[in-house]
Each structure stands twice: as structure tokens, then as C-alpha cells.
């Protein structure tokens, strides 16, 4: 896993797909190629109310990426300093081995260039101290650009606060 982590707070997500749109604009991806995507499940009944569930799918930037191992040309790479998995366009020959290898369908085919593209967490922005496009413009602040450690800490804090506020209401 890379140093970074994009956390998705499903209670805030309204499934508006702004993240997908901003990603497509930033990365200039053709139709059918989505470096990040909101997967909608439902509607289905949950405690008496029909709900949609939304799951944000981009790239997990694995510690041992299947795609990097599968790539025969060295185009698919893992950046040493922070573990971001990205494609070096010049080396990609379009063999799609990474698409076969990835268990989550992350690498995206670009029919116009005959190459693969994928989420690189907007490396150019990160290197300027900015957040990825999807996170920067999320409509309801459902996405947060963070680290795995910070995400854990913040979730524990949130849980603790909600527990206490429930006690306050009951007491």
C-alpha cells in the first residue's frame, strides 16, 4: 500500500459522480475508461427504508501490485518514495497483461492511444502539495486524501464522538 490513502465516507456520499467527472477531465480519459468510479448497489431495503449504497473504486496502490509483476515492459511501476503505482506511457505496449492481473479491474484501456492508463493519485498535484482531483472537488466532502494511519485514527475519533453524543442525547 502506498503511503497515501483515499478514504470514502459512505454516510456522506450521495452518488453524484462528481469524482468520476473531475477524474476524467484531469486525466483526459476516453469514454469507457474511468480511473475512479462510484459503483452503485441497490436500491435495497435497509431497516425499512430503500437505500442506495455507493462504493468508491479507484486503485489501492498495493504494496505488492499484481499489475507491476505482470507487466513485461516495465511500464507499470511503483514509485519508490511513496508507493504510488503508475504507468510510464512511453513503455506501455498495450498488451493488457496488467488488466488480466489486477483482481479489482483497476487498469483502464484507452482505445485511442492503444495503451493502459490508471489512477496515479494525481501525482503531479501531490508533488505540489495538493490533493487528487476527485478529493479536491468532492461535493459533500465524502472523500479525504490521507494516510492509512490517519484514516484509522480519524475513524476511531469519529466513532468515539458519536458514541458520546448518543449518550448525551439519552442522558
Amino acid at each position: 500500500m502506498s503511503t497515501y490513502y483515499v478514504s470514502h465516507d459512505v454516510s456522506r456520499c450521495i452518488g453524484c459522480r462528481a469524482c468520476e467527472a473531475h477524474c476524467k477531465v484531469k486525466n483526459d480519459t476516453p469514454a469507457g475508461s474511468n480511473y475512479c468510479k462510484i459503483m452503485t448497489v441497490g436500491p435495497r431495503l435497509s431497516r425499512g427504508i430503500p437505500r442506495f449504497d455507493f462504493v468508491y473504486m479507484a486503485c489501492f496502490h498495493c504494496e505488492k501490485p499484481w499489475c507491476v509483476d505482470a507487466c513485461p515492459t516495465g511500464a507499470m511501476q511503483r514509485r519508490d518514495k511513496d508507493g504510488i503505482v503508475f504507468v510510464n506511457d512511453d513503455l506501455c505496449v498495450g498488451c493488457k497483461a496488467c488488466i488480466t492481473a489486477c483482481p479489482w479491474g483497476v487498469p483502464q484501456w484507452n482505445g485511442a492511444t492503444g495503451k493502459v492508463g490508471k489512477c496515479d493519485l494525481c501525482m503531479d498535484r501531490i508533488d505540489q502539495g495538493l490533493a487528487p482531483a476527485c478529493v479536491s472537488k468532492c461535493v459533500t466532502d465524502a472523500l479525504t486524501f490521507t494516510t492509512a494511519e490517519q484514516a484509522s485514527e480519524s475513524r476511531r475519533q469519529q466513532f468515539a464522538e458519536s458514541l458520546l453524543s448518543k449518550q448525551d442525547q439519552q442522558g
Binding site: C16, R17, A18, A21, H22, K137, V139, T140, D141
Partner: peptide, 11 residues
Amino acid sequence: LGGALCARGAA
């Protein structure tokens, strides 16, 4: 808006 923009705005 804290940077927020919808898909329509992106377009």
C-alpha cells in the same frame, strides 16, 4: 464551497 464542484460543472 471548499472547492466542491459537481459533474455538470466539471463538464
